[in-house]
Nucleic acid binder design. Sequence first.
DNA 1: GTGATTGCAAACTTTTTGCATCCGA
DNA 2: TCGGATGCAAAAAGTTTGCAATCAC
Lengths: 155, 155
Amino acid sequence: MNQNVFKQMLKEKNLKVTRQRLLVLELMGDHPGEHLTAEDIYEFAREKDPEIGLATIYRTLQVLVELQVIDKISFDDGFARYELGHVPDGEGQTRHHHHHAICSRCGAVYSFEEDLLDNLEQSLMERLGFLVVDHEVKLFGYCRSCREKMKEEQS
Amino acid sequence: MNQNVFKQMLKEKNLKVTRQRLLVLELMGDHPGEHLTAEDIYEFAREKDPEIGLATIYRTLQVLVELQVIDKISFDDGFARYELGHVPDGEGQTRHHHHHAICSRCGAVYSFEEDLLDNLEQSLMERLGFLVVDHEVKLFGYCRSCREKMKEEQS
DNA sequence: GTGATTGCAAACTTTTTGCATCCGA
DNA sequence: TCGGATGCAAAAAGTTTGCAATCAC
């Protein structure tokens, strides 16, 4: 996400461009594909701006979620996580989300993109009149290296 | 879920059959298709057993999740929710989960079943060696009645 | 200048834990 | 009997909020 685009988004919502907001955006960009907690971001932020407060991190993340710059996700391990969202398509309609495969043994998270839900979304519209605009898919299972370790343990 | 089956499951894990555990199971069965929070279950439980403690509810829910009798889900509104899980198939392999369509306007949750993820799961196995054993799909959008209301508001 | 934003600390919410008591097997 | 389970209260952990000081515009 371009910093100038971000500044423009803030201005359109009558929000101010602050050192803290720019820093959080920068940090999110520095860690693509990671699923950072507020605490993670706080730690990174303090390296560059020791004065920054945790409450500011939370408030800034809220702003970024509202602006659809980042997504808030949960792996049900007790804290919310944040990651850079993908740019909405031209029409501003359906977003191109990526999904997550979570290893139940080691906790590794693999991200991937794939739009295999179109059929499902269409059927919901026909049956319930429900218009899907976003989706989130989590797959739970075992990654290759854990499967190998599990095989060894078995023998 | 049959009470005797549950009693058997507890015994197999060397857990005791208690009044409280039976009550929580009963309450979950009384509210099929709902997505109850621990607090909801606590309220229902106190109607039948005013002595019961909230900590017991949490501890019992944990046991039920471990026994795969219920599923823990989150709609990211701040608390965990629980619902009766579907019975695993004969092989004890992939579970037949249902999914959720959540209205972003009124918060209504529609549940449905559909196994359209087989292709996706197979492709993950081929590409990453990741074995999927369970999945969770959340769709966000607008339900029929909210869409109608939104149309009216627009005019 | 002025209203939004920040940092801090305190509050809040959901969930977990310690411990004495109680109960199921 | 005796180890697991319960209820209560206190603690923990993540997040939010009130407020005075500060900053962006």
